[in-house]
Write a protein that binds this DNA or RNA. Structure first.
Length: 436
RNA sequence: GCGGGAGUAGCUCAGUGGUAGAGCGUCACGUUGCCAACGUGAGGGUCGAGGGUUCAAAUCCCUUCUCCCGCUCCA
């Protein structure tokens, strides 16, 4: 059992590095912090943006039949009745003070714990959803919820998207956005937080074509993590057993990653069947059926959902990149998502080298994420860049003035390459291109 | 929500009633000049927050917040 201790040490090192280098901070820190909330610093915000951007392009740009959407966080409260979120989470719950088991008060016949006979707490309402009020009056009639999942925004817009985009089933809708769940137990850094960002794609298919679609999306989603250069031996599928299936799901597979804290879910690929649209049809009274011109039939499409945790993806990227070598700590990000892609380092702060370096930065900054650093020894500067995951460092030395060439040092191998300044842009473009 | 542990400089931590410290990092100047380790100097902390005891509190007491571990929970 020495494993957990060791892995927690790794996690602590990552948390510490994230703060030290400006990836992730505790939220509201100067006020003592607030539970389970985190802020992305300069490098973290850039990294997260890159992950989201890659996901977005992998969906919308790479697929003719996937459209984007950005729905509002506040939605009609009836949506959450239709989705089952209100119903499932208004149950009064009691805890056993002795054995700590939790029960639904309305399903208990006895007044003591059915497990051990211990004393029970007063019934309490547990609702996963954050509540607030729409408008200035705080009355029950004005209650609205912060969405506990982004998916419903897609479902209630499915006909709008279909009609305005001239898509035909099968087609998908992709969305990135915040969701909020009042988790009982958040924790493990940014892994489980009450405010989090989802990257969801809901794929609408003809009933009966859901199973092949499910298989195709499972493969495609796993391939996406490969493109992010996540260690394949730390990725796997976990299939939900019948007892683990959510109320809407016919089949569910999670993509899991082996974090330092153990195997944990990154993304769910679920067959949600026609459950959600059927419910919305019933609750809204609107006809949500699709008319298939080819087959001349009406049906409610089945939905294959790929629902990824954005913050979890970022944490996965950080954990997977984190490498401790004998003499250095390196974040081995896939170059195309690295927050800083190219560091420009004049070997010395004189002889006109800083000016040459500044000119190169000016030339390349519209194409790559650049960082200029002239402070400290060259070795120290390499180590600093290693620790923030910069894939390429370019040094300008006294020979540069003669041969118009610079040294490019590669992060992972630490090997150096001499490249003409005129060829830098092509050289870097080739190595920093996203694998779309 | 329950039980345990912990919060002191950006990071890692020492300091158990008597003037708030170290190493690393950061910044400036000098030196070196291709893989952190040189010299000099500087900045940085109301010791998580609030209250109490005391002549005196980082240190003792109470409350609270945050983080970690375990349980519980996890649409």
């Amino acid at each position: 059992m020495s494993q957990p201790k060791k892995t927690n040490e790794t996690m602590e090192k990552i948390v510490s590095l994230c703060k030290r280098r400006g990836f992730i901070f505790q939220s509201s820190e100067i006020y003592g912090g607030i539970n389970s909330c985190y802020d992305y610093g300069p490098l973290g915000a850039e990294l997260k943006r890159q992950v989201k951007d890659f996901w977005w392009k992998s969906m919308t740009q790479a697929h003719e039949n996937i459209e984007g959407l950005d729905a509002s966080i506040l939605m009609h409260p009836r949506i959450w009745e239709a989705s089952g979120h209100v119903e499932g989470f208004t149950d009064p719950l009691v805890d056993c003070k002795k054995c700590k088991n939790r029960f639904r008060a309305d399903q208990l016949e006895e007044t003591t714990c059915p497990n051990c006979g211990g004393e029970l707490t007063e019934p309490r309402q547990f609702n996963l959803m954050f509540k607030t009020f729409m408008g200035p009056v705080e009355s029950d009639a004005n209650i609205v919820y912060l969405r506990p999942e982004t998916a419903q925004g897609i479902y209630v817009n499915y006909l709008n998207v279909l009609n305005s985009s001239r898509q035909k089933v099968p087609f998908g809708i992709a969305q990135i956005g915040k969701a909020f769940r009042n988790e009982i137990t958040p924790g493990n850094f940014t892994f489980r937080t009450r405010e989090f960002e989802q990257m969801e794609m809901q794929y609408f298919v003809r009933p009966g074509e859901d199973e092949p679609a499910m298989e195709a999306w499972k493969a495609e989603r796993m391939a996406w993590y490969d493109k992010l250069q996540i260690n394949p031996s730390k990725l796997r599928f976990h299939e939900h057993g019948k007892n683990e299936l959510a109320h809407y799901a016919k089949a569910a597979f999670d993509v899991e990653y082996e974090f330092p804290i153990g195997w944990q879910e990154l993304e769910g690929v679920h067959n949600r069947t026609d459950f959600d649209l059927t419910r919305h049809e019933k609750f809204s009274g609107k006809n949500l059926k699709y008319f298939d011109e080819e087959k001349k039939e009406k049906y409610i499409p089945y939905i294959i959902e790929t629902s990824a945790g954005c913050d979890r993806s970022v944490l996965c990227v950080l954990c997977d990149a984190f490498t401790e070598e004998e003499e250095r700590t390196v974040l081995k990000f896939a170059p195309f998502i690295a927050p800083v892609q190219v560091a420009i380092l004049p070997l010395v702060k004189k002889d006109g080298l800083p000016e040459i370096a500044r000119n190169i930065v000016a030339d390349l900054r519209s194409k790559f994420r650049m960082f200029y650093d002239a402070g400290g020894s060259i070795g120290r500067r390499y180590r600093r860049q290693d620790e923030v995951g910069t894939p390429f460092c370019i040094t300008i030395d006294n020979d540069t003035k003669g041969d118009n060439a610079v040294t490019i040092r590669e992060r992972d191998s630490m090997k150096q390459d001499r490249v003409n300044i005129g060829e830098l842009s092509d050289y870097l473009t080739k190595r920093l291109a996203p694998p779309l």
